[in-house]
Amino acid sequence: MEADPTFQKINENAMRLRKQKDQTEYPLQLEKYQKWDKKLAEEAEKYDNMFKPIDGFLVENLAADLPNIQSDTSRIARNDNWLKERKKDIQLFETYRIMQDMIKMDALAGKN
């Protein structure tokens, strides 16, 4: 998990946020301000779109829910959007992996 590039970026971004929260003094000299503003924007840009759809992670609706979801266009759109977000949700994917490990350990321990 620590080696995962997205998790590394999350940790980096957490450090950036921490640093910025403490920095409450702003330059008022024109060039200095604009340089500072640009630097902030560039730093923030690195973390734009850092969440990408996770390869091989399938996120699907329940068959039982489909008739309701497909009953109107705004529901379809909201659902599509939700599925897309969850497919990029690296914390959820990691949790899914932990769950699969739990299930394997249960099998070894003779449960189920």
Partner: peptide
């Protein structure tokens, strides 16, 4: 929160409560 200024365009809608309710998905890999 990091100081960056951003423009966000949102299409207004009726806020449908059902989206705040419990819902579920199937996960596979």
């Amino acid at each position: 929160p990091d100081g960056q200024v951003k423009s966000i365009t949102i299409t207004r809608d009726v806020v449908i409560m059902e989206e705040g309710l419990a819902k579920s998905l199937i996960l596979r890999a």
